[in-house]
Design a protein around this nucleic acid. Structure first.
Lengths: 121, 121
DNA sequence: CCTGTAGTCAACCATGTGGTTGAATACGGT
DNA sequence: ACCGTATTCAACCACATGGTTGACTACAGG
Protein backbone atom coordinates (compact mmCIF):
# COMPACT_ATOMS: atom_id res chain seq x y z
CA UNK A 1 0.00 0.00 0.00
CA UNK A 2 0.85 3.66 0.40
CA UNK A 3 2.47 3.65 -2.99
CA UNK A 4 2.76 6.84 -4.97
CA UNK A 5 -0.15 8.30 -6.94
CA UNK A 6 0.96 7.01 -10.31
CA UNK A 7 1.35 3.48 -8.99
CA UNK A 8 -2.10 3.59 -7.48
CA UNK A 9 -3.68 4.74 -10.72
CA UNK A 10 -1.92 2.19 -12.89
CA UNK A 11 -2.62 -0.50 -10.34
CA UNK A 12 -6.28 0.43 -10.14
CA UNK A 13 -6.68 0.16 -13.90
CA UNK A 14 -4.79 -3.13 -14.08
CA UNK A 15 -8.01 -4.94 -13.20
CA UNK A 16 -10.53 -5.62 -16.00
CA UNK A 17 -13.53 -5.27 -13.72
CA UNK A 18 -12.32 -1.91 -12.50
CA UNK A 19 -11.62 -0.74 -16.03
CA UNK A 20 -15.13 -1.79 -16.96
CA UNK A 21 -16.52 0.15 -14.03
CA UNK A 22 -14.60 3.20 -15.16
CA UNK A 23 -15.94 2.73 -18.68
CA UNK A 24 -19.48 2.63 -17.37
CA UNK A 25 -18.96 5.60 -15.11
CA UNK A 26 -17.76 7.58 -18.10
CA UNK A 27 -21.32 7.30 -19.35
CA UNK A 28 -23.10 8.08 -16.12
CA UNK A 29 -22.74 8.15 -12.36
CA UNK A 30 -24.07 5.04 -10.66
CA UNK A 31 -24.69 3.53 -7.28
CA UNK A 32 -22.74 0.59 -5.91
CA UNK A 33 -25.62 -1.81 -6.48
CA UNK A 34 -26.12 -0.64 -10.02
CA UNK A 35 -22.44 -1.09 -10.70
CA UNK A 36 -22.39 -4.53 -9.12
CA UNK A 37 -25.38 -5.85 -11.01
CA UNK A 38 -23.71 -6.98 -14.28
CA UNK A 39 -20.93 -8.97 -12.61
CA UNK A 40 -21.39 -12.26 -10.87
CA UNK A 41 -19.51 -11.22 -7.77
CA UNK A 42 -20.95 -9.94 -4.52
CA UNK A 43 -21.67 -6.29 -4.02
CA UNK A 44 -18.99 -6.25 -1.35
CA UNK A 45 -16.38 -7.14 -3.90
CA UNK A 46 -17.46 -4.21 -6.04
CA UNK A 47 -17.40 -2.00 -2.99
CA UNK A 48 -13.75 -2.97 -2.55
CA UNK A 49 -13.01 -2.24 -6.19
CA UNK A 50 -14.56 1.17 -5.77
CA UNK A 51 -12.37 1.79 -2.77
CA UNK A 52 -9.32 1.05 -4.87
CA UNK A 53 -10.54 3.39 -7.60
CA UNK A 54 -11.28 6.03 -5.00
CA UNK A 55 -7.83 5.71 -3.41
CA UNK A 56 -6.38 6.19 -6.87
CA UNK A 57 -8.42 9.34 -7.23
CA UNK A 58 -10.30 7.92 -10.19
CA UNK A 59 -13.73 8.14 -8.62
CA UNK A 60 -15.43 10.04 -5.84
CA UNK A 61 -18.40 9.00 -3.79
CA UNK A 62 -20.94 11.41 -2.41
CA UNK A 63 -23.65 10.80 0.06
CA UNK A 64 -27.21 11.03 -1.15
CA UNK A 65 -29.68 9.48 1.25
CA UNK A 66 -28.49 5.94 1.83
CA UNK A 67 -27.11 5.76 -1.67
CA UNK A 68 -23.50 6.55 -2.54
CA UNK A 69 -23.46 7.70 -6.15
CA UNK A 70 -20.08 7.03 -7.68
CA UNK A 71 -18.63 9.67 -9.95
CA UNK A 72 -15.72 9.41 -12.34
CA UNK A 73 -12.90 11.88 -11.80
CA UNK A 74 -11.24 12.02 -15.18
CA UNK A 75 -8.47 14.47 -14.30
CA UNK A 76 -6.27 11.73 -12.91
CA UNK A 77 -6.02 10.34 -16.40
CA UNK A 78 -3.77 13.27 -17.20
CA UNK A 79 -1.25 12.03 -14.68
CA UNK A 80 -0.88 8.85 -16.68
CA UNK A 81 -0.96 10.37 -20.13
CA UNK A 82 1.70 12.84 -19.09
CA UNK A 83 3.93 10.05 -17.86
CA UNK A 84 3.32 7.89 -20.91
CA UNK A 85 3.71 10.68 -23.43
CA UNK A 86 6.92 11.81 -21.84
CA UNK A 87 8.70 8.52 -22.30
CA UNK A 88 7.15 7.66 -25.58
CA UNK A 89 8.32 10.97 -26.96
CA UNK A 90 11.74 10.41 -25.46
CA UNK A 91 11.96 6.99 -27.04
CA UNK A 92 10.88 8.35 -30.39
CA UNK A 93 13.34 11.21 -30.12
CA UNK A 94 16.10 8.78 -29.37
CA UNK A 95 15.09 6.64 -32.28
CA UNK A 96 15.21 9.61 -34.59
CA UNK A 97 18.59 10.71 -33.22
CA UNK A 98 20.06 7.27 -33.69
CA UNK A 99 18.83 7.42 -37.22
CA UNK A 100 20.60 10.72 -37.76
CA UNK A 101 23.83 9.43 -36.31
CA UNK A 102 23.78 6.41 -38.52
CA UNK A 103 22.90 8.57 -41.50
CA UNK A 104 25.52 11.26 -40.94
CA UNK A 105 28.62 9.71 -39.37
CA UNK A 106 30.80 12.86 -39.48
CA UNK A 107 33.61 13.68 -37.08
CA UNK A 108 30.72 14.30 -34.73
CA UNK A 109 30.36 17.16 -32.36
CA UNK A 110 27.76 15.19 -30.63
CA UNK A 111 26.58 16.35 -27.21
CA UNK A 112 25.93 12.78 -26.18
CA UNK A 113 28.11 12.09 -23.10
CA UNK A 114 28.57 8.32 -23.34
CA UNK A 115 30.09 8.71 -26.78
CA UNK A 116 33.23 6.88 -25.78
CA UNK A 117 34.11 5.58 -29.15
CA UNK A 118 37.59 4.28 -29.09
CA UNK A 119 38.58 7.78 -30.04
CA UNK A 120 42.26 8.69 -30.22
CA UNK A 121 43.33 10.96 -27.42
CA UNK B 1 -3.33 -13.58 -13.83
CA UNK B 2 -4.15 -10.48 -15.80
CA UNK B 3 -4.98 -12.36 -18.96
CA UNK B 4 -5.65 -9.47 -21.30
CA UNK B 5 -2.99 -7.22 -22.80
CA UNK B 6 -4.22 -3.99 -21.29
CA UNK B 7 -4.21 -5.46 -17.80
CA UNK B 8 -0.68 -6.67 -18.27
CA UNK B 9 0.55 -3.25 -19.40
CA UNK B 10 -1.17 -1.34 -16.62
CA UNK B 11 -0.04 -3.91 -14.11
CA UNK B 12 3.54 -3.76 -15.34
CA UNK B 13 3.63 0.00 -14.96
CA UNK B 14 2.03 -0.09 -11.52
CA UNK B 15 5.46 -0.75 -10.01
CA UNK B 16 7.78 2.25 -9.44
CA UNK B 17 10.92 0.24 -10.12
CA UNK B 18 9.54 -0.97 -13.41
CA UNK B 19 8.45 2.53 -14.38
CA UNK B 20 11.94 3.73 -13.57
CA UNK B 21 13.41 1.01 -15.74
CA UNK B 22 11.14 2.07 -18.58
CA UNK B 23 12.22 5.67 -18.06
CA UNK B 24 15.86 4.68 -18.30
CA UNK B 25 15.27 2.50 -21.33
CA UNK B 26 13.66 5.46 -23.07
CA UNK B 27 17.13 7.00 -23.00
CA UNK B 28 19.11 3.97 -24.08
CA UNK B 29 19.06 0.20 -24.30
CA UNK B 30 20.79 -1.49 -21.38
CA UNK B 31 21.82 -4.88 -20.06
CA UNK B 32 20.24 -6.51 -17.04
CA UNK B 33 23.23 -5.78 -14.85
CA UNK B 34 23.34 -2.16 -15.91
CA UNK B 35 19.67 -1.83 -15.15
CA UNK B 36 20.03 -3.52 -11.77
CA UNK B 37 22.95 -1.42 -10.62
CA UNK B 38 21.11 1.65 -9.22
CA UNK B 39 18.66 -0.32 -7.07
CA UNK B 40 19.52 -2.13 -3.91
CA UNK B 41 17.84 -5.34 -4.92
CA UNK B 42 19.42 -8.41 -6.45
CA UNK B 43 19.89 -8.76 -10.17
CA UNK B 44 17.44 -11.64 -10.08
CA UNK B 45 14.70 -9.34 -8.88
CA UNK B 46 15.38 -7.03 -11.81
CA UNK B 47 15.37 -10.00 -14.13
CA UNK B 48 11.89 -10.78 -12.87
CA UNK B 49 10.77 -7.20 -13.40
CA UNK B 50 12.05 -7.37 -16.95
CA UNK B 51 10.08 -10.53 -17.51
CA UNK B 52 6.93 -8.72 -16.44
CA UNK B 53 7.73 -5.82 -18.76
CA UNK B 54 8.45 -8.25 -21.56
CA UNK B 55 5.19 -10.15 -21.03
CA UNK B 56 3.42 -6.82 -21.23
CA UNK B 57 5.17 -6.15 -24.52
CA UNK B 58 6.91 -3.10 -23.13
CA UNK B 59 10.43 -4.34 -23.70
CA UNK B 60 12.20 -6.89 -25.84
CA UNK B 61 15.41 -8.73 -25.15
CA UNK B 62 17.85 -9.79 -27.81
CA UNK B 63 20.79 -12.08 -27.54
CA UNK B 64 24.25 -10.57 -28.03
CA UNK B 65 27.05 -12.80 -26.81
CA UNK B 66 26.20 -13.54 -23.19
CA UNK B 67 24.56 -10.18 -22.78
CA UNK B 68 20.83 -9.61 -23.21
CA UNK B 69 20.36 -5.96 -24.19
CA UNK B 70 16.93 -4.75 -23.17
CA UNK B 71 15.07 -2.52 -25.57
CA UNK B 72 11.98 -0.41 -24.97
CA UNK B 73 9.01 -1.10 -27.22
CA UNK B 74 7.10 2.13 -27.07
CA UNK B 75 4.23 1.11 -29.33
CA UNK B 76 2.35 -0.57 -26.49
CA UNK B 77 1.93 2.82 -24.93
CA UNK B 78 -0.62 3.52 -27.62
CA UNK B 79 -2.79 0.75 -26.29
CA UNK B 80 -3.06 2.59 -23.00
CA UNK B 81 -3.41 6.08 -24.37
CA UNK B 82 -6.19 4.93 -26.65
CA UNK B 83 -8.06 3.41 -23.74
CA UNK B 84 -7.51 6.41 -21.50
CA UNK B 85 -8.34 9.00 -24.13
CA UNK B 86 -11.50 7.22 -25.05
CA UNK B 87 -13.00 7.39 -21.59
CA UNK B 88 -11.63 10.75 -20.71
CA UNK B 89 -13.21 12.20 -23.82
CA UNK B 90 -16.45 10.42 -23.02
CA UNK B 91 -16.42 11.78 -19.49
CA UNK B 92 -15.70 15.29 -20.70
CA UNK B 93 -18.44 15.05 -23.29
CA UNK B 94 -20.87 13.96 -20.64
CA UNK B 95 -19.74 16.72 -18.34
CA UNK B 96 -20.41 19.26 -21.02
CA UNK B 97 -23.84 17.78 -21.64
CA UNK B 98 -24.69 17.78 -17.94
CA UNK B 99 -23.72 21.40 -17.88
CA UNK B 100 -26.26 22.09 -20.59
CA UNK B 101 -28.96 20.26 -18.67
CA UNK B 102 -28.22 22.15 -15.48
CA UNK B 103 -28.17 25.37 -17.38
CA UNK B 104 -31.56 24.61 -18.94
CA UNK B 105 -33.12 23.57 -15.61
CA UNK B 106 -36.28 25.61 -15.08
CA UNK B 107 -36.84 25.38 -11.34
CA UNK B 108 -36.14 22.09 -9.66
CA UNK B 109 -38.36 19.01 -9.36
CA UNK B 110 -35.53 16.69 -10.22
CA UNK B 111 -36.82 13.62 -12.02
CA UNK B 112 -35.39 10.31 -10.91
CA UNK B 113 -35.69 8.70 -14.36
CA UNK B 114 -32.79 9.10 -16.72
CA UNK B 115 -32.14 11.87 -19.20
CA UNK B 116 -35.51 13.21 -20.01
CA UNK B 117 -34.60 15.76 -22.61
CA UNK B 118 -35.91 18.81 -20.89
CA UNK B 119 -39.19 18.94 -22.75
CA UNK B 120 -40.98 21.52 -20.64
CA UNK B 121 -44.61 21.19 -21.51
C1' DC C 1 39.88 -26.68 -20.83
C1' DC C 2 38.91 -23.94 -17.14
C1' DT C 3 37.42 -19.70 -15.27
C1' DG C 4 34.99 -15.48 -14.92
C1' DT C 5 30.95 -12.89 -16.32
C1' DA C 6 25.92 -12.31 -17.61
C1' DG C 7 21.76 -14.00 -16.94
C1' DT C 8 17.98 -17.27 -15.69
C1' DC C 9 15.67 -20.96 -13.04
C1' DA C 10 13.89 -22.94 -8.73
C1' DA C 11 12.47 -22.99 -4.17
C1' DC C 12 11.09 -20.39 -0.62
C1' DC C 13 9.01 -16.48 2.29
C1' DA C 14 6.21 -12.37 3.43
C1' DT C 15 2.79 -9.54 2.05
C1' DG C 16 -0.90 -7.87 -1.03
C1' DT C 17 -5.19 -8.67 -3.43
C1' DG C 18 -9.70 -10.42 -5.05
C1' DG C 19 -13.02 -13.01 -3.55
C1' DT C 20 -16.22 -14.97 0.00
C1' DT C 21 -19.69 -14.88 4.15
C1' DG C 22 -21.73 -12.65 8.00
C1' DA C 23 -22.56 -8.75 10.86
C1' DA C 24 -22.95 -3.78 11.41
C1' DT C 25 -24.35 0.87 10.04
C1' DA C 26 -27.14 4.60 7.89
C1' DC C 27 -31.17 6.18 6.01
C1' DG C 28 -36.14 6.54 3.95
C1' DG C 29 -40.68 5.14 4.05
C1' DT C 30 -44.67 3.66 6.25
C1' DA D 1 -40.72 3.23 16.07
C1' DC D 2 -39.77 -0.25 12.86
C1' DC D 3 -38.36 -2.38 8.70
C1' DG D 4 -36.15 -2.70 4.49
C1' DT D 5 -32.68 -1.13 1.39
C1' DA D 6 -27.88 0.39 0.36
C1' DT D 7 -23.46 0.07 1.69
C1' DT D 8 -19.52 -0.86 4.43
C1' DC D 9 -16.68 -3.45 7.94
C1' DA D 10 -14.34 -7.66 9.58
C1' DA D 11 -12.54 -12.04 9.34
C1' DC D 12 -11.11 -15.35 6.46
C1' DC D 13 -9.16 -17.96 2.25
C1' DA D 14 -6.59 -18.82 -2.16
C1' DC D 15 -3.40 -17.20 -4.93
C1' DA D 16 -0.36 -13.64 -7.18
C1' DT D 17 3.71 -10.84 -6.47
C1' DG D 18 8.26 -8.94 -5.03
C1' DG D 19 11.91 -10.18 -2.77
C1' DT D 20 15.59 -13.46 -1.23
C1' DT D 21 19.40 -17.26 -1.74
C1' DG D 22 21.55 -20.93 -4.27
C1' DA D 23 22.27 -23.60 -8.24
C1' DC D 24 22.37 -23.69 -13.11
C1' DT D 25 23.33 -22.40 -18.29
C1' DA D 26 25.79 -19.75 -21.90
C1' DC D 27 29.45 -17.69 -23.66
C1' DA D 28 34.42 -15.03 -24.18
C1' DG D 29 38.96 -15.46 -23.44
C1' DG D 30 43.46 -16.77 -21.37
Amino acid sequence: MAADALSRVFSALADPTRRDIVARLAVADATVNELAEPYDVTVQAISKHLRVLEDAGLVSRSREAQRRPVHLEAEVFDLMTRWIERYRRQAEERYRRLDDVLRAMPDDVDPTPPAQTGAPA
